[in-house]
Simulated scan of single mutants.
Amino acid sequence: MSERENLPIPDYDHLPVGSLRHRIRSLGRDDLERLLDYERAHGDRLPVVQAMSARLAELAAGAVPSGGTPDAPAPEHPPGPDATSKVSPSTRGPALTPPSHGTPENPTQPRKTG
């Protein structure tokens, strides 16, 4: 198994920072330190390093990991397609009239005289 496959958060490299902040709350000190070491060696993204360092400080101050799981469905993924479409003729917007672009045949376009 590679180092990446052995991380406590599956698919870690592809998660956005907001999701990582949420998921690291479920990790204990050892897993979080391992993840932080990996981040520093690979991406070294400042917001991620700061979030992990802050969480390590919280754990050192007595915080406990949350009851969530680090492999929970990512909140940033949209839900799957609905089986029924909500689009119908009754939900269609009003018909639009394209702009006239100054054509003389268009009665709504004022003509310049003189």
Rank of each mutant, 00 (worst) to 15 (best):
P98S: 11
S66I: 02
P75F: 15
E58C: 08
A95N: 07
V17G: 01
P89T: 10
R25E: 13
G67V: 06
A74E: 07
P89D: 11
S66L: 09
D82Y: 04
H22A: 02
P47D: 11
P73R: 14
D71A: 15
P70N: 11
G62Y: 07
D71Q: 08
V87T: 07
V64S: 13
H42G: 01
K86R: 11
P65W: 09
L46G: 12
R45T: 13
E33S: 07
A74F: 01
H22M: 07
H42P: 00
G43Q: 10
T69D: 15
T84D: 10
R45V: 13
D44F: 04
L46Y: 05
A72L: 11
A61G: 08
P98G: 09
G28N: 15
G102W: 01
G62K: 05
E76Q: 12
R23P: 02
R21I: 03
M52R: 00
L32N: 02
S90L: 06
G68C: 08
G68P: 01
D30P: 00
L96F: 13
T97C: 09
R92H: 09
S26M: 03
A57H: 06
E105A: 14
A95D: 12
M52C: 01
R92F: 14
Y38H: 15
G18F: 02
P81S: 07
H22K: 04
G28Y: 04
G67Q: 08
N106C: 13
P98K: 12
P81W: 02
L20D: 00
A63F: 03
V64F: 04
G43A: 15
D31G: 14
Y38G: 01
T91E: 08
E33T: 09
A63V: 05
I24T: 03
D30E: 15
H77R: 04
R34N: 14
T108E: 15
D31Y: 02
P98V: 08
R34W: 01
G93F: 00
